[in-house]
Write a protein that binds this DNA or RNA. Structure first.
Lengths: 268, 268
DNA sequence: AAGCAATGGTTCTCTGTCATACCTTAAGCC
DNA sequence: GGCTTAAGGTATGACAGAGAACCATTGCTT
């Protein structure tokens, strides 16, 4: 999907090739290595504005925050929220439109609307490539950490106002039809992450969950498994409302373990 | 510190002011709200390249990955790792040089060297302002989640090769002089995060730890507390090497709780 | 002493993005 | 029917940043 940009080859290697050269003096130890440094030296502004914006908007769709048939925020508004110019955002929307993922309508009450998933007829190949690029272990582990963390934090310090939202989100998953299940499931977990009281956690979860959903789209949705998930959801929410952090974490860990096993089985 | 850039006023509000307008059709529910959307609609490319790069390089220093007296990677190399042009990186280094935080030497075996902390004589005021802008609860909670998660993951699946690194990092903290303690402590935790097997976790931890260190620089270093930390470090590492995930998580949670209480007490 | 190599220092050009203004379309309202 | 309004569609000038080439400095090697 989406060739465009990154005009030619991916960032020419330019000159340089010095092997390593960090922390050699004073403090010593030369803990150089591709070790700790690698955690920090990740690229600022990976890719260009266009690519990053595309990533964000795709995340919006993958998380189901805007359901099929739903309308995205107006271009002027969305571009502002994303901190990007309207021109750049429009380039992204143009691509999504060409891909048949969204549709733009002009005039008052117009806007950009999400189209139902188009069977991924030709997207299948693209999907495989994308998924191959994902670090499965990283995704699954990080997800488990954030989920259990969120569950624990919620159990510890959920504001009374949050109880209603949580219950509502749980009920929505229980009443969901099959084709809407993933979306409601995502929203439930996202709600939990938000209620954790850490915006960093919520942002991190949104990102990892978008990746996860992409992976989940590659494997069958097993009704058997789904029912099990439902029970676990209920148990987690119950533990949170009981303010039993340990139980909430444990249930969530189990819940994540299930998905992880499924994905490892099908994709590894 | 570092005015520069963002040429005039911060991103003019432009037009728009539409209240909300998401997910109104089909799937319905209109879960619009500043709720879930807010997690995803965070700005792509916050600020400009200069600011983001400055942030990254400061993180490098705050984490102590390059110790005082140590040399940063060569400009050509560092700029490449950061995905930023050498010119932009140089603007950042120029600022840090003006602030007396680093020093550049030319010629072969030259480079950019980290100077010992200059007492923060006039930096104090700047420090207060920065710290005021930090979301303390977010930082502490997110930190606890990542740390306990990392400890648990390490206990579950630490490769044999990692045991040595972990032991070495622990010993380094125990042998550290007072002024080097924070740095070694950071490196120990960073090692644990890296060994978790999730690069996302490691990256997230590096970021949150840089913020944490900034906060810690505002409060006194209590020897009493430090000794306690040392015992907890040993206990966590022991639990990890024993492959006892539950114990590792519990000890780590306690460890984080201590720092959190300290910071909440001094700063809240 | 001369040459080499690795580093910081400087300059130029070209492209992506931003900001802004304006045009067009379509639904509701008077 | 015509006006208003809220959306998408288009055009343009200014600037930040990337990329590349080149200069200057230093220490090691021969």
């Amino acid at each position: 999907m989406v060739t465009r940009r990154r005009t030619d080859g991916t960032r020419p290697a330019a000159a340089d090739s010095a092997p390593e050269a960090v922390g050699e003096a004073a403090g010593g130890e030369a803990e150089t290595g591709s070790g700790p440094l690698a955690s920090v030296l990740r690229p600022v502004r990976a890719g260009n504005g266009f690519e990053e914006t595309l990533e964000q908007v795709l995340q919006l769709l993958r998380l189901g925050l805007v359901p099929p048939g739903g309308r995205l925020p107006a271009e002027r508004e969305l571009s502002q929220h994303l901190g990007v110019s309207r021109v750049t955002l429009r380039e992204v929307l143009k691509v999504l439109q060409d891909q048949g993922m969204v549709e733009s309508r002009r005039g008052r009450y117009g806007g950009t609307f999400v189209l139902p998933r188009a069977g991924a007829a030709d997207g299948s190949d693209e999907l495989r490539r994308r998924v191959a690029a994902v670090d499965l272990e990283d995704t699954l582990r990080f997800r488990e950490v954030l989920e259990t963390g969120a569950a624990g934090l919620c159990a510890d310090g959920l504001p009374a106002e949050g109880e209603g939202r949580l219950r509502a989100a749980l009920e929505a998953t229980q009443g969901a039809r099959l084709e809407d299940y993933r979306r409601q499931d995502t929203l439930l977990h996202l709600t939990l992450a938000e209620l954790s009281g850490s915006t960093s956690l919520a942002a991190g979860y949104a990102s990892v969950r978008a990746t996860l959903n992409e992976l989940l789209d590659c494997i069958p949705l097993l009704v058997r498994n789904l029912e099990h998930s439902q029970q676990q959801h209920a148990a987690v929410v119950e533990a949170v409302l009981d303010r039993d952090a340990e139980a909430a974490r444990e249930m969530m860990r189990e819940h994540c373990g299930g998905t992880a096993a499924l994905l490892r089985g099908f994709l590894a």
